[in-house]
Protein backbone atom coordinates (compact mmCIF):
# COMPACT_ATOMS: atom_id res chain seq x y z
CA UNK A 1 0.00 0.00 0.00
CA UNK A 2 1.41 3.37 -0.98
CA UNK A 3 0.95 6.55 0.98
CA UNK A 4 -0.03 9.69 -0.88
CA UNK A 5 2.58 12.41 -0.54
CA UNK A 6 0.67 15.67 -0.13
CA UNK A 7 3.68 17.75 -1.15
CA UNK A 8 4.06 15.98 -4.49
CA UNK A 9 0.34 16.10 -5.15
CA UNK A 10 0.15 19.77 -4.26
CA UNK A 11 3.01 20.68 -6.61
CA UNK A 12 0.79 19.64 -9.48
CA UNK A 13 -1.76 22.25 -8.38
CA UNK A 14 0.59 25.19 -8.15
CA UNK A 15 2.42 25.16 -4.87
CA UNK A 16 -0.26 24.15 -2.44
CA UNK A 17 2.47 22.50 -0.41
CA UNK A 18 3.48 25.88 0.97
CA UNK A 19 -0.10 26.54 1.90
CA UNK A 20 -0.47 23.25 3.76
CA UNK A 21 2.76 23.80 5.66
CA UNK A 22 1.84 27.36 6.55
CA UNK A 23 -1.69 26.43 7.47
CA UNK A 24 -0.40 23.81 9.83
CA UNK A 25 2.05 26.08 11.59
CA UNK A 26 -0.31 29.01 11.83
CA UNK A 27 -3.01 26.84 13.35
CA UNK A 28 -0.77 25.74 16.17
CA UNK A 29 -1.88 27.01 19.52
CA UNK A 30 1.64 26.67 20.79
CA UNK A 31 4.73 26.89 18.65
CA UNK A 32 7.21 24.04 18.52
CA UNK A 33 9.30 25.71 21.16
CA UNK A 34 6.13 26.75 22.97
CA UNK A 35 5.87 28.08 26.48
CA UNK A 36 8.58 30.71 26.27
CA UNK A 37 7.31 32.57 29.25
CA UNK A 38 6.44 29.53 31.33
CA UNK A 39 9.04 28.28 33.72
CA UNK A 40 11.75 30.09 31.89
CA UNK A 41 14.27 27.26 31.47
CA UNK A 42 14.80 24.82 28.62
CA UNK A 43 13.43 21.85 30.53
CA UNK A 44 10.01 23.45 30.95
CA UNK A 45 9.92 24.50 27.29
CA UNK A 46 10.66 20.94 26.24
CA UNK A 47 7.88 19.65 28.45
CA UNK A 48 5.39 22.09 26.96
CA UNK A 49 6.47 21.15 23.43
CA UNK A 50 6.19 17.47 24.35
CA UNK A 51 2.71 17.97 25.79
CA UNK A 52 1.69 19.82 22.64
CA UNK A 53 2.93 16.92 20.53
CA UNK A 54 1.01 14.36 22.62
CA UNK A 55 -2.12 16.51 22.41
CA UNK A 56 -1.94 16.98 18.64
CA UNK A 57 -1.44 13.24 18.07
CA UNK A 58 -4.26 12.37 20.46
CA UNK A 59 -6.71 14.77 18.82
CA UNK A 60 -5.95 13.41 15.34
CA UNK A 61 -5.79 9.69 16.08
CA UNK A 62 -8.95 7.56 16.10
CA UNK A 63 -7.81 5.41 19.03
CA UNK A 64 -5.97 5.94 22.29
CA UNK A 65 -2.24 6.53 22.17
CA UNK A 66 0.17 5.76 25.02
CA UNK A 67 0.18 8.34 27.80
CA UNK A 68 3.20 9.70 29.62
CA UNK A 69 1.87 9.81 33.18
CA UNK A 70 4.98 11.54 34.52
CA UNK A 71 4.67 14.31 31.96
CA UNK A 72 1.01 14.97 32.79
CA UNK A 73 1.71 15.04 36.53
CA UNK A 74 4.71 17.28 35.98
CA UNK A 75 2.71 19.73 33.85
CA UNK A 76 -0.12 19.79 36.38
CA UNK A 77 2.37 20.65 39.10
CA UNK A 78 4.03 23.26 36.90
CA UNK A 79 0.71 24.92 36.13
CA UNK A 80 -0.24 24.99 39.81
CA UNK A 81 3.06 26.69 40.60
CA UNK A 82 2.60 29.22 37.81
CA UNK A 83 -0.94 30.04 38.93
CA UNK A 84 0.37 30.57 42.47
CA UNK A 85 3.09 32.89 41.15
CA UNK A 86 0.54 34.90 39.14
CA UNK A 87 -1.78 35.13 42.15
CA UNK A 88 1.11 36.44 44.21
CA UNK A 89 1.93 39.04 41.53
CA UNK A 90 -1.69 40.16 41.37
CA UNK A 91 -1.83 40.39 45.13
CA UNK A 92 1.19 42.67 45.13
CA UNK A 93 -0.23 44.84 42.36
CA UNK A 94 -3.61 44.93 44.14
CA UNK A 95 -1.93 46.20 47.29
CA UNK A 96 -0.26 49.02 45.37
CA UNK A 97 -3.55 50.02 43.73
CA UNK A 98 -5.22 50.10 47.15
CA UNK A 99 -2.54 52.50 48.36
CA UNK A 100 -3.22 54.67 45.32
CA UNK A 101 -6.94 54.80 46.07
CA UNK A 102 -6.35 56.02 49.63
CA UNK A 103 -4.09 58.78 48.24
CA UNK A 104 -6.90 59.88 45.93
CA UNK A 105 -9.33 60.04 48.82
CA UNK A 106 -6.93 62.27 50.75
CA UNK A 107 -6.57 64.54 47.72
CA UNK A 108 -10.33 65.07 47.52
CA UNK A 109 -10.49 66.01 51.19
CA UNK A 110 -7.66 68.56 51.10
CA UNK A 111 -9.54 71.14 48.99
CA UNK A 112 -7.79 70.76 45.61
CA UNK A 113 -9.39 72.10 42.39
CA UNK A 114 -11.49 69.95 40.09
CA UNK A 115 -8.76 69.54 37.47
CA UNK A 116 -6.23 68.50 40.03
CA UNK A 117 -8.73 66.14 41.60
CA UNK A 118 -9.34 64.62 38.18
CA UNK A 119 -5.62 64.14 37.71
CA UNK A 120 -5.32 62.56 41.13
CA UNK A 121 -8.24 60.27 40.40
CA UNK A 122 -6.50 58.87 37.36
CA UNK A 123 -3.36 58.11 39.26
CA UNK A 124 -5.46 56.54 41.97
CA UNK A 125 -7.15 54.13 39.52
CA UNK A 126 -4.39 52.95 37.20
CA UNK A 127 -6.71 50.84 35.00
CA UNK A 128 -8.40 54.07 33.86
CA UNK A 129 -5.22 55.84 32.84
CA UNK A 130 -2.38 54.93 30.47
CA UNK A 131 -2.09 51.55 28.69
CA UNK A 132 1.06 50.71 30.63
CA UNK A 133 -0.69 51.37 33.92
CA UNK A 134 -3.68 49.38 32.75
CA UNK A 135 -1.44 46.40 32.11
CA UNK A 136 -0.40 46.30 35.75
CA UNK A 137 -3.86 46.91 37.12
CA UNK A 138 -5.43 44.10 39.17
CA UNK A 139 -7.54 41.79 37.06
CA UNK A 140 -10.66 39.90 37.92
CA UNK A 141 -10.27 36.18 38.43
CA UNK A 142 -12.42 34.92 35.56
CA UNK A 143 -12.15 31.24 34.71
CA UNK A 144 -11.20 31.32 31.04
CA UNK A 145 -10.98 27.67 30.07
CA UNK A 146 -12.82 27.28 26.78
CA UNK A 147 -15.25 24.40 26.60
CA UNK A 148 -16.44 22.65 23.48
Amino acid sequence: MAALNIDDAADMFGGMADYTQNAYTSNDILSDDGGDSIGGDDEDQNEVALLRQFWVNEVASPSLLPIDVDLVECMTLLLKNQVAVIDQLEENVGGEAKDGRSEGREARNDGTTGAKRHQKKHTAYPHNSSPSARRFAPRLQIPCLPFN
Binding site: I29, V48, W55, V59, L64, V72, Q82, L89, L145, N148
Partner: peptide, 22 residues
Amino acid sequence: YQSEVDRVKYVLVDYLRVRLRK
Protein backbone atom coordinates in the same frame (compact mmCIF):
# COMPACT_ATOMS: atom_id res chain seq x y z
CA TYR B 1 2.04 35.59 31.42
CA GLN B 2 -1.53 34.72 32.41
CA SER B 3 -2.57 34.01 28.83
CA GLU B 4 0.43 31.74 28.30
CA VAL B 5 -0.53 29.77 31.41
CA ASP B 6 -4.12 29.61 30.16
CA ARG B 7 -2.95 28.23 26.83
CA VAL B 8 -0.94 25.44 28.41
CA LYS B 9 -3.83 24.72 30.77
CA TYR B 10 -6.17 24.46 27.80
CA VAL B 11 -3.82 22.03 26.03
CA LEU B 12 -3.53 19.86 29.13
CA VAL B 13 -7.27 19.86 29.86
CA ASP B 14 -8.23 19.23 26.25
CA TYR B 15 -5.68 16.41 25.99
CA LEU B 16 -7.21 14.64 29.00
CA ARG B 17 -10.74 15.38 27.81
CA VAL B 18 -10.08 13.88 24.35
CA ARG B 19 -8.69 10.76 26.02
CA LEU B 20 -11.72 10.44 28.29
CA ARG B 21 -14.04 10.80 25.31
CA LYS B 22 -12.23 7.95 23.55
